[in-house]
Design a protein around this nucleic acid. Structure first.
Lengths: 200, 200
DNA sequence: CAATTATACAACACAGTGTAAATTTAATCT
DNA sequence: AGATTAAATTTACACTGTGTTGTATAATTG
């Protein structure tokens, strides 16, 4: 525990990891993931190649750890938003908006790792994360009316809504965010309302 | 042109390419894309390593060509289905069903290259392909009622529907196809009807 | 049959990987 | 501030994978 905390406070470690992360995003803009080697990464990050191995086992390991960090960030947004709202619909609406704001603030990172098609693991992780949230949301709505669940299978609906949400965000990034986070969140809420119309 | 045709008829070429393709799908089941080398690929395909370079520049090049083949197959399904139907809604419904049947028939291929998260290019290509079809479909519906387009931006709707369709197919594959192609196609048609309800 | 072409085989220079040892540099703690 | 601790560097090594070349063999085509 104490050791882990140290890993997060030692400025040398933070600096090196940030250098690696920045270098990686930079290289992804320039070349395919397959072409990114530990050699190039270290050179671009202005660190020694051996130093890389002090932090990550190999490149796939690095990707996993970076994906973990991403989910941790997003998870914080969700838990922070949930607390200061009351209406169920208002919450999910606000959460999506905050999520989009966060992504827009780090658009360079998300565009290259999520949208620019190159590194599947980030999309996977986000899918798994959001699916859980959407599951609980759909189950809540399912309670109020049982018509929907008799027509469309719940798991198919979850697949559908999760993919639509993530895919739209990805397309939004790929097109250089032509709409504001608030506007896109409102559009999501409209698209989502369609479902409720069918239910009632 | 003649040369290209030869490439498609020479039994030696067809055999070698099929061996490479099968070996690649096999290896993807066992390991990450990053770990798949030309060495391993040639060994598994029981061909000489140099032979690989006679067909493809490198592994990324091979992936592109395989993705081209995939789109060619799916494209054929679409053009075959479109001709023998009349009703606009019936067509898209039948097309999706035929697409799902095709995917189910080659589920081993699609599960590993599309669903099992590892090779982004196949999902990209399919997204681009289906998006075009969905664009024309939405534009058709847009003609009959203009209410929808005033509420939800057309491009956002296209992002949404395309991602939902592909994402659901991917989830369906990842869960070992628990529903029949016909049933899933019907579910899509139900989910799609929601939009029409809002419009009218 | 003769020409063409795909594949096999061997060998090469080169790039990238992962690890180990000793050393330097920088942060932490009293 | 000085001693301590840990990160980063440097250098070196064995190993795997890459991409190319030259030659030989076997299958296909006209």
């Amino acid at each position: 525990m104490m050791e882990k905390k140290k890993l997060h406070t030692d400025p040398r470690i933070l600096r090196t990891r940030q250098l690696i992360k920045n270098a990686f995003v930079e290289l992804l803009e320039e070349m395919d993931l397959q072409k990114i080697t530990v050699n190039r990464l270290a050179e671009r990050a202005t660190i020694n190649r051996v130093t890389f191995y002090l932090h990550y086992r190999d490149i796939p390991d690095m990707l996993e750890k970076m994906a973990d960090d991403m989910i941790e960030d997003i998870s914080t947004i969700f838990s922070n938003t949930t607390t200061d709202q009351t209406s169920s619909d208002e919450i999910s609406w606000k959460i999506v908006e905050n999520l989009l704001v966060h992504i827009a603030e780090h658009s360079n990172f998300y565009k290259n790792l999520l949208a620019s098609k190159k590194v599947p693991i980030f999309r996977e992780r986000l899918t798994m994360f959001l699916r859980e949230r959407i599951v609980t949301k759909i189950e809540e709505n399912g309670r109020s009316s049982h018509i929907q669940t008799e027509i469309v299978k719940e798991d198919i609906l979850i697949w559908y809504e999760t993919s639509a949400l993530i895919g739209t965000i990805v397309s939004w990034l790929q097109n250089d965010m032509p709409y504001s986070p608030t506007f896109l969140a409102k559009q999501f809420s409209l698209l989502h309302q369609r479902r409720i119309n069918v239910e009632s």
